[in-house]
Amino acid sequence: MRKWLAVIFLILLGFFMAKITSSFPFGKEKWGVSKHYVDRGIEENRGSNLVTSIVVNYRGFDTLGEVTVLFLAATALAFLLSTCRCRRRYERREASLIVKTASETLYPLLILFGAYIFIHGHLTPGGGFQGGTVIASAVMLMLLAHFTFHPNHRALSTVEGLAGITFVLIGFAGLIWGGSFLANNIIPLGQWNRLFSAGVIPLIYVAVGFKVGSELSGLITDMINTTKEE
């Protein structure tokens, strides 16, 4: 009975989705805000990755909100973990020599790759959030492979705070000299498709990369270290 209800529900859902999406003009002429983004985005921001132009410049205020949400979530989780008496349900086994050696080789490479992603955020797909996550995955690899690996928690939170302040300060610089919050006309825009281009967009994305990377690294460290052996 439940199975048939699920099937009927899925059919109805598919029907309405098809009905709704069939009225969207895919591939046709765009209008309004999206037309402005597509037609004038590169000209206005000189960033060859249009998605980054939208995320960091046109909707930069939104991104600031997202970074804040991430910060709040990390803080709340750290608080919850500090109060809980979590117990590990099984013994933690030492990683094998192969994993240890490989993780030591990969750790700097992964951090380099994460930095590459957020430094080239305005040129290639990816950006601060993705690069930061790659860096956090490098830290997680080291934490899983080595019992003795302890990232400096104080340094991580300092980096996180400084990166967040940098984002807000760039926004205020735009407000003072450019005319609006996060305005992208305070430093030269440079030439399209170069590393030093797109004005403040790469600066903001580097800050976001540092922030997300240190935040998630601290979070993972907390989660692994607060669970004690029985």
Binding site: S96, I98, V99, T105, L106
Partner: peptide
């Protein structure tokens, strides 16, 4: 090179 480094190690683990 990256695949050569990661894939065997992860499967081993």
């Amino acid at each position: 090179l990256f695949i050569l480094l990661t894939n065997p190690v992860s499967s081993h683990a």
